[in-house]
Amino acid sequence: MTSIQDAKAPAGEVVLEAIGLTKHFPVRRRLRDLFRRQHSAVHAVDDVHLTLRRGQVVALVGESGSGKSTVARLLAQLYPRTGGDIQLHGESTRVKGGSSFRAYAARVQMIFQDPFASLNPVHTIRYHLTRALKIHHNAGDDLDAALAELLTRVSLTPPERYLDKFPHELSGGQRQRVAIARALGAQPEALLADEPVSMLDVSIRLGVLNLLRDLKERLDLAILYITHDIASARYFADQTMVMYAGRMVEGGDSETVTQTPAHPYTRLLIDSAPDPDRLTGDVDPLEEDRGNGEPPSLINPPSGCRFHPRCPAAMARCSTDLPVPLEIGDAPGHWAACWLYDKAGAR
């Protein structure tokens, strides 16, 4: 690990950008549908724009099935995209085959939700980390020193205590730290963390999040933090984007999005989060949701605004016209895809 401090780009510079990113999964058709003209598909991600900058964390928040993991996998080029573009330092990228994928993975690494599943149970920590270093030619002359440095970076010290352990001999939090160390072995510029702490115990989540924050600062990483816990986005991310049914519905700096949410769905999400200050007794049933808490089908997503069947503020045009991102005006860069903020259009 010698070149890790090498500045690959100045702070704040755009590292990775998604432009109109779209992913539709074909649905396996039943025999009787075969002769129908229309091909059905799961509209998992539609027209997503996202910018990751050096030294910044962007949180992607949304309920399960809203498409968060699909966005991460697209950005990691684990799936081919249906449409749109992924640009690394302004250059369009599409990996084909092993070597171009490895070159891409050297710059963009992913961390998965389940640290149990992402490490191979028959191999030691030493094996996992050595492999990561060697694939990306980052082992240098002194492999042992490089390994020790990786473990130290993720606060697994002294390194000798962990190197020859098997994954099952470590706790969940320690395993997730190993997964992070392995990602760092590639010396990436961007880290895509898909719910990195949601399988961990409450008492150790904070430690792993603080570690990621620390790495962001020390290594100037661009981090995508995917979570369904919007409170953790407030603490941990510079910017927060909210996804609903495959589309981005709101974005801005984290404090603004969580404290003065604009989109009716973000408001519902925030009102639903547990609130210890709202003590027992006054559990008001949510009036903000006209539905049953159910997300819509992504095979036939609702027309117009995908939230309109549940939205308490829905207007006539909402069921026909797809809302465009509109500026809210309370803080720079705060936007929502909602017709409520269409100052020009007829209400």
């Binding site: 706790s171 008492s203 150790i204 430690g207 816990d229 409170a231 603490y235 404290q259 609130d275 200050d277």
Partner: peptide
């Protein structure tokens, strides 16, 4: 103190050192 708060001022999160 392990829970980030969604509302109110941002508190310092201390958490719990060590593991279960």
């Amino acid at each position: 103190s392990s829970f980030p708060a969604l509302r109110g001022p941002k508190r310092e999160l201390a958490g719990i050192p060590g593991s279960p």
